[in-house]
């Protein structure tokens, strides 16, 4: 179980997260939603230790994570923008990450799954956005960790890769893993997630299942339910 308690983060004067209290149960797919700049990525990055919050605690299975690093061995992370060192070849990058983790992994299986084989000897700088994202997905999923964090996993993917990704996520869930996803593609979230949390201006606005959200907003579709929350805010 992941617990965020009284989490606060400012960047200068700008309050990105204002007192976040959130519990994420083990197993299942958990979606974090919210408009641009609402603090989704900051929340995820604090869990990963890339952003250091001013206040509050984060625990994974009762273990503190702030200022620790060992726990990341049990976390797989897909960053939002696939920024890779451009002068490296795909295969070199994969081997390097394998070497750094020093753990058994299933790279070959994922290389085949995401059809990366023809690009293995190409430099990362020459790849298209979608191909980069596929390499990014291989790097994320290859270690088989119990916690997977995906920040905008669908960006740039073609329909075939998107279906592959969906199937992969469903398979990983079946293994009992916890998967945290942020996305702006509502159909993707509705199809996959067991629970959603909606963040607005650094605060948690809603937490629960998709059907509960529809009920609360009195909307028949998920997309309209989200839109109605946003309209309420902007008016």
């Amino acid at each position: 179980m992941i617990v965020f308690q009284d989490l606060k983060k400012n960047f200068g004067k700008f309050e990105v997260l204002k007192t976040i209290n959130l519990k994420i149960n083990e197993g299942g797919i958990f979606a974090i939603l919210g408009p641009n700049g609402s603090g989704k990525t900051t929340l995820i990055k604090s869990l990963l230790g890339m952003v250091i919050p001013q206040n509050g605690t984060i625990t994974i299975n009762n273990q503190q994570v702030i200022h620790k690093w060992n726990y990341r061995d049990k976390v797989d992370y897909l960053p939002q923008i696939a920024n890779f060192p451009s002068n490296l070849k795909v295969i070199e990058l994969i081997n390097m990450v394998k070497d750094i983790r020093g753990r058994k992994c299933r790279d070959q299986e994922l290389i085949n799954l995401f059809r990366i084989t023809p690009f293995l000897n190409k430099k990362l700088g020459t790849l298209s956005g979608g191909t980069k994202q596929r390499v990014n997905l291989v790097l994320t999923f290859m270690f088989d960790s119990p916690l997977i964090i995906l920040d905008e996993p669908t960006s740039g993917l073609d329909p075939v890769a998107l279906i592959t990704l969906k199937e992969l996520i469903i398979n990983e869930k079946a293994k009992g893993k916890t998967i945290i996803i942020t996305s702006h593609i509502m159909s993707f979230v509705e199809e996959l997630s067991d629970e959603v949390v909606f963040i607005l201006d650094g605060e948690i606005y809603f937490q629960g299942s998709v059907s509960k959200l529809k009920e609360q907003t009195k909307q028949s579709s998920f997309e309209y339910a989200i839109a109605s929350i946003l309209k309420e805010q902007y008016v």
Binding site: L48, W69, R72, S86
Partner: peptide
Amino acid sequence: DSKEFTELLLAQPIKR
């Protein structure tokens, strides 16, 4: 120049 690589490493189990 290696900022991107650094970001990749930060998510790995390595001490900052």
